[in-house]
Nucleic acid binder design. Structure first.
Lengths: 214, 214
DNA sequence: TATTTTTTTTGCCAAATGGTAAAAAGTGAA
DNA sequence: TTCACTTTTTACCATTTGGCAAAAAAAATA
């Protein structure tokens, strides 16, 4: 089966649609990921698979946008998403990148239902498994373990982000770049220079110079 | 009642002790904080108060240390704690500061029970309400809402940290300092220059020059 | 108070990074 | 292929920040 027959596509005007028969489809990556954080029986796994739906977003598309309220969570099956915002100088800053086997959500907006100030944008074409807040609520009521699994995932993901970002302030730009290459060896060549530079907190030209010097 | 009769003190060799009669003591700040995230009835509030115990740690003392496994969570009634680590150059870096009405815990170590790589140190004398992992477990089993309240608190605190730290990379040092003054107006004069400089990602002398220029 | 210790400020110069704009390289479409 | 467009590299100089060490100020201690 080609992925295009499985993944819905909502390029410019995101009309996410849900496919009818879920049990056929390979959400193994999602299920494997969830099982790292708690137990789910076969029945629960089926239920989970029935609530997520497959979506493709193209490079440049937004999964969620500043000013809108986040109503969905995505599990990234493939592709790269970046989380970004505009600073007070008007520059677009990349907060962090998310790649395969991670959840992507504007958590603040999702939790509070207040319009967000950050964007989640596909850096490359992404295959996602998406779930809405309402469907999450249904899983929460049907699966005793669910809230525990999700809160563990959230805490781990956020601690990782703090742990990864905070040492960067005390490093020079070359060190930050080299560490990025170590931490995300697969990403460096798939991300435009401008996005990587804003993640590293330097200008495009500085990053270009750093690349040359290595 | 003087605070010294309420707060236990474990200056050099932390032998935390629990006081017998909790209902007398002012954990209002803690309870008010918890109630922002979910409901607790009077009985549950009493139970919560019985599980936390009051502790004072002096300036310079560690609440938790790198290399040890975190077994406690502290609610800061008064004082400032900083979370710090050593980078690969051997410099001590402050990841962030925590002040009144916040929980302080090495979350990664607390959750995984793996020795941590960060320190939680009192920047000033701190009055804490402390709870152990075992006592948390008891609250979790006794109070249906408990896990939900705690996971909301954790998610909110971590999202705040990511949101606060990540714009700093794209700002120059003066801007970071000025924003720090805005965000923590009460802290600036209570924190040694060296700790603040490492939080801002600059040297002591740079920070000193920036102060002069303002 | 006097003395020691710690913290902060300052001066010097070197190194890193920013800002701008132009050139070069890469990409995609006709 | 050629053309238009986007992305990356390069060059120039100004500004910021670091590294080091000494001086000054502040805080702790006797």
């Amino acid at each position: 089966m080609s992925s295009s027959s499985f993944f819905g596509n909502y390029r410019s005007n995101p009309a996410i649609f849900q496919l009818k028969s879920h049990y056929l489809y390979p959400m193994n990556a999602l299920i494997d990921y969830l099982l790292q954080f708690g137990k789910l029986n076969a029945e629960e796994i089926n239920l989970v698979q029935s609530k997520f739906y497959a979506v493709i977003i193209q490079k440049g598309d937004y999964f969620s946008e500043a000013g809108k309220t986040a109503k969905q969570i995505a599990f990234i099956k493939s592709g790269i998403i970046r989380v970004c915002f505009f600073n007070n100088k008007g520059d677009e800053i990349t907060r962090y990148f998310l790649d395969e086997n991670n959840f992507a959500v504007d958590l603040n907006s999702y939790n509070t239902q207040i319009p967000s100030s950050e964007y989640l944008q596909a850096v490359s074409t992404c295959e996602l498994f998406v779930i809405t807040r309402e469907q999450m609520e249904e899983l929460s009521e049907a699966i005793p373990n669910w809230d525990d699994i999700i809160s563990k995932i959230i805490a781990k993901a956020l601690v990782e982000k703090v742990t990864r970002i905070s040492p960067m302030l005390s490093e020079d730009a070359s060190t930050r770049y080299l560490n990025f290459l170590k931490q995300y060896p697969k990403l460096a060549n798939r991300i435009p220079l401008s996005m990587l530079a804003s993640y590293l907190g330097i200008t495009q030209s500085s990053l270009s110079r750093i690349r040359r010097s290595i």
